[in-house]
Write a protein that binds this DNA or RNA. Structure first.
Length: 725
DNA sequence: GGATTCATTCTTTTT
DNA sequence: GAATGAATCC
C-alpha cells in the first residue's frame, strides 16, 4: 500500500495508553495499523520485550513479524493464542501440578483417546458419536467448564448426558496420566494457572505492558479471559477486529467479546476505519448490501476511492463441470490480459469441492496451490515419526506409544498394547517404563508372556527410543536425530508396504528432514521439545514460496486477511452456501452470510459468483437451488454475462416443469405426471425431489431423493402413492 | 497376529 | 464417494 495514514488510522497508530478498540472494516488496513502502532511504541522507547502481539493463525503471526521487521530491527513476540498459552505453560504449568514436559495432542490424537475412553467405559455402541462428544468437550473447555460444572442440558437426553460427562471426566484423567494437553487445554489450563497461582499471575501481568490482538471478533471465552488476566495490571490493550468478519462461532468464538469491549474495559476508546483501500465500488457496494441483511451488527459503511470498477458477475451453469469450465475460461482470459495467476483465487465452502477445480486446472495446465487443506504435519508418515520423538520425550504418552510400537510390524499388535495398558494402569507406571521392566526383569510382570521374537522386537523399539532420548540430551542436530530415527526404526519398511504411495511419503519425510536442518541452522539452542511444540501447533503447511506464480484454491474460511485481483466464489447454492447444517438457526445463517461477505471483500477488481443447477452431492446427483444470498445482493451492482434474461427469470423457468436440458435425466419424462425436479411427498419418506423418471417392467418409476433420510430411493409410480410437494 | 474384504458412516469451517 | 471400522479368512 502506498497511501499515507488517514486521520483515523493515524489516531489509532498514535494511541499509547489505555484500552482501544479498532473496528476495522475489510480492506481498511488492519494489519498495517497494528504493525505501525508497534513500531510507534518502539520509537517512543517502549522495550521490545514488553510488547506482545497475538493473532489467530500462524500465518498471520508470521506475516506480522515479517512486516514489523521491515520497519524495525527489534524482535517482537508475535504468536497465536495457542502458542502463547503453550509458552506460558511450558514455563509454569508445574505450579498447578502438571509436568512441564507435556505433549500436545492434536485433533486426531484426542479423537483416538476419546474412542478408547468410550471403550473403557463400556459404551461400545457410541463409537459413531466420538466426534460429537469431542466437540461437546471442546465446547465445555472453551467455556471453561470442568466435568463437574456441567449441568444436564435440555438438548441432551439424560443418557447422552451421562455418557458425555463420564467420558469427559475420564478423558481429562487420561490426558493427565499421559502427560498431555489438547488444543483446548492449552487455553483452559493457562487461564486456570493465571487464576490460581498468584506468582504466575504477578509475573505474566507485568511481563507485557502492551498487548495487541488481531481478529478480536474471533476470540472465545477462554481467550477472552486469558486476555483479561494478562492486561489487568497495565490495561494497555489494543484490539482490532471486524464483527462482520466473525466466522468462527462454531469454534466457540463469541462475537459479544468485541461488541461488549467498551463495557468490559473502562475508558476504552473506539475508532472505526471505514475507508477501504482494496476493492472498487461495485464490488464493495454489493458486499455491503449483503451484510446489511444481518440483524445483529456494529453499523458501519465501507467506502472506497478506487472508482466504480466492474460489476459483480453472476452465472449459473448446468452442472459443476460446466461451472468449473467457465471459471477456467475466466482465469485464462484474465491471464492473457496480463494478470498473474498468483493474483487469482477460487473460493469454495467445503474442502470436498476442491477436487473438481484441481482436475480442471491440471487439465488446463494452469499452476495452482491449495492453501490450507490437509496439512503437511497431519500426514500420516510425518505424524508417525513425530510420535516416535514424542514418546521419547514424554514416556507416559500412551497415544504416541501405541501409534508407533507396531510401525513397522513388530508382532506387537492390539492385544499386546491392551495388556500393557492394563499393567501400566494398575502399577501406575509410564507405559515406556513398563516396557523396560518387561525386558529387564520379565518375572515381575508375569501376565505378559512374550515370545522370544516379540522380546527381540520390543528391545529393538526401546533402542530406538533410547537413541532419541540420548540424542536429545546431547543436543544432536535435529536433522541427524530424525534421519537416524527413520533408519533405526526401519520405518521405511512400513511405508514400503504400500507401493503406490511409497515415493510420495518418503519425499515427505525428506522434506521433514530438510525442515529440521533449517531449524538447526536458525536456532542453535533449540531443543527437541521446542521443535515438537512448534510443529504440533502448526497446522497449515504454508507453501514453500507463497508468491509462486499459481492460482490459489481455498475454503472461504482460509481467505480471511488475503486479497486478489480476480476472485471466484463457486458453488453458490442452497445447502452449500448457506451450508445445510447452518440452516436451522438464524445465527448460523448470519454467519454463513458473513462468510460470503468475507469472500466477496477479498476481491480487488473482478468478482465472479457462480453456481450450478445440478451437482453430484453425497454420491448422488442433486438438483440445486441458487443461494438465497444471491437474491440479497443489490441488483445495480450485478451483471449476468451468460444470459440475456435476468437470473430470476431463469430461476422461474427452472421451477416450472418445462425443464428441457438435463444432463442427469432422460427425456422420457416429458409426458409423466412428475418430472425431474418436481417436489413430491411420500407418506413414509416425507418430502423429496424427483431425480430421474424412467420405465421399467413394472411401469413408470422414479428415483426420488428424500430430504429426511438424505438418500435416493427408486419408487414405482403405481405402488408408491406420491403426492405433489 | 495380520491381511483382506465388506460395510457403514458421514460428510463444514481449524488452532 | 472416501475413509474408517468390523468381520472374515489365512
Amino acid at each position: 500500500m502506498t497511501h499515507h495514514l488517514n486521520p483515523h488510522q493515524d489516531q489509532a497508530v498514535k494511541h499509547i495508553e489505555g484500552p482501544m478498540l479498532v473496528i476495522a472494516g475489510a480492506g481498511s488496513g488492519k494489519t498495517r495499523i497494528i504493525t505501525h502502532r508497534i513500531v510507534h511504541l518502539l520509537n517512543i522507547g517502549v522495550p521490545a520485550a514488553e510488547i506482545l502481539a497475538v493473532t489467530f493463525t500462524n500465518k498471520a503471526a508470521e506475516e506480522m513479524k515479517h512486516r514489523i521487521n521491515q520497519l524495525s530491527f527489534k524482535n517482537i513476540l508475535t504468536c497465536t493464542f495457542h502458542s502463547l498459552a503453550a509458552k506460558i505453560l511450558r514455563e509454569s504449568i508445574h505450579l498447578i501440578g502438571f509436568s512441564n514436559q507435556f505433549s500436545i495432542y492434536d485433533e486426531d490424537d484426542s479423537l483416538s483417546l476419546i474412542k478408547s475412553c468410550l471403550k473403557t467405559l463400556g459404551y461400545e455402541d457410541e463409537k459413531s458419536r466420538v466426534k460429537s462428544i469431542k466437540s461437546s468437550i471442546s465446547q465445555a473447555k472453551n467455556d471453561l467448564k470442568q466435568p463437574n460444572d456441567l449441568k444436564a442440558d435440555s438438548t441432551l437426553s439424560s443418557l447422552d448426558f451421562t455418557i458425555f460427562k463420564s467420558t469427559y471426566s475420564l478423558y481429562q484423567q487420561k490426558l493427565k496420566e499421559y502427560n498431555a494437553l489438547d488444543f483446548d487445554d492449552l487455553l483452559f489450563q493457562c487461564v486456570h494457572l493465571l487464576k490460581t497461582s498468584e506468582p504466575a499471575r504477578v509475573y505474566y501481568q507485568s511481563k507485557w505492558s502492551f498487548i495487541l490482538i488481531d481478529e478480536y471478533q474471533d476470540t472465545n471465552e477462554a481467550q477472552y479471559l486469558l486476555t483479561k488476566l494478562l492486561v489487568q495490571k497495565h490495561q494497555n490493550l489494543f484490539v482490532v477486529g471486524d464483527p462482520d468478519q466473525s466466522i468462527y462461532s462454531w469454534r466457540g468464538a463469541n462475537i459479544q467479546n468485541i461488541l461488549n469491549f467498551e463495557k468490559d474495559f473502562k475508558n476504552a476508546k473506539v475508532i472505526k476505519l471505514e475507508q477501504n483501500y482494496r476493492s472498487t465500488n461495485h464490488i464493495l457496494s454489493a458486499a455491503n448490501s449483503l451484510i446489511q441483511k444481518n440483524s445483529s451488527r456494529y453499523e458501519k459503511n465501507l467506502w472506497s476511492a478506487l472508482g466504480d470498477g466492474e460489476k459483480v458477475q453472476i452465472t449459473t451453469h448446468e452442472n459443476e463441470y460446466e461451472e468449473s469450465r467457465y471459471v477456467m475460461q475466466r482465469i485464462s482470459s484474465h491471464h492473457a490480459r496480463g494478470i498473474g495467476y498468483e493474483k487469482m483465487v477460487i473460493f469454495y465452502r467445503t474442502n470436498a469441492q476442491s477436487r473438481i477445480y484441481e482436475d480442471a486446472l491440471l487439465k488446463q495446465k494452469i499452476p495452482y496451490v491449495i492453501v490450507g487443506g490437509i496439512s503437511f504435519y497431519q500426514r500420516r508418515e510425518i505424524k508417525d515419526l513425530l510420535s516416535y520423538l514424542k514418546v521419547a520425550i514424554s514416556p507416559s504418552d500412551f497415544i504416541s506409544f501405541s501409534r508407533t510400537i507396531n510401525l513397522p510390524k513388530r508382532g506387537l499388535g492390539p492385544s499386546f498394547i491392551e495388556k500393557l495398558k492394563e499393567v501400566s494402569e494398575r502399577a501406575s507406571l509410564p507405559i515406556l517404563e513398563v516396557c523396560t521392566k518387561l525386558i529387564c526383569s520379565p518375572l515381575s510382570f508375569i501376565e505378559c508372556k512374550l515370545t522370544t521374537k516379540q522380546q527381540e522386537s520390543l528391545k529393538g523399539y526401546l533402542e530406538v527410543i533410547e537413541y532419541i532420548q540420548n540424542g536429545a540430551k546431547n543436543r544432536i542436530q535435529l536433522k541427524e536425530l530424525i534421519k537416524k530415527t527413520i533408519e533405526k526404526s526401519n520405518y521405511l519398511d512400513h511405508l514400503k508396504e504400500d507401493k503406490e504411495t511409497y515415493e510420495d511419503r518418503k519425499a515427505n519425510l525428506d522434506e521433514l528432514i530438510t525442515k529440521a536442518s533449517e531449524w538447526d541452522e536458525e536456532n542453535e539452542e533449540l531443543t527437541l521439545e521446542h521443535f515438537l511444540e512448534e510443529l504440533s501447533l502448526k497446522s497449515s503447511s504454508e507453501g514453500k514460496n507463497p508468491y509462486h506464480e499459481s492460482v490459489k484454491l481455498m475454503t472461504l474460511h482460509n481467505g480471511k486477511g488475503l486479497e486478489f485481483d480476480v476472485t471466484c466464489i463457486v458453488g453458490l447454492e442452497e445447502e452449500i452456501l448457506p451450508h445445510v447444517n447452518s440452516k436451522h438457526s438464524n445465527e448460523e445463517l448470519e454467519e454463513e452470510r458473513r462468510l460470503l461477505y468475507v469472500g466477496m471483500t477479498r476481491a480487488k477488481k473482478h468478482l465472479y459468483l457462480t453456481s450450478s443447477s445440478y451437482r453430484m452431492l453425497w454420491g448422488t446427483p442433486r438438483l440445486m437451488e441458487p443461494s438465497r444470498f444471491l437474491e440479497e445482493l443489490d441488483q445495480e451492482h450485478l451483471i449476468y454475462p451468460l444470459k440475456k434474461e435476468s437470473f430470476f427469470e431463469r430461476r422461474e423457468e427452472r421451477s416450472t416443469p418445462a425443464l428441457s436440458r438435463q444432463s442427469f435425466s432422460e427425456e422420457k419424462s416429458a409426458e409423466d405426471e412428475f418430472r425431474v425436479g418436481s417436489y413430491v411427498i411420500h407418506k413414509d419418506f416425507g418430502k423429496g425431489i424427483i431425480q430421474k423418471a424412467y420405465m421399467t417392467s413394472l411401469g413408470k418409476t422414479y428415483d426420488v431423493f428424500f430430504n429426511d433420510t438424505r438418500s435416493t430411493k427408486s419408487l414405482v409410480a403405481k405402488f408408491a402413492k406420491l403426492k405433489r410437494g
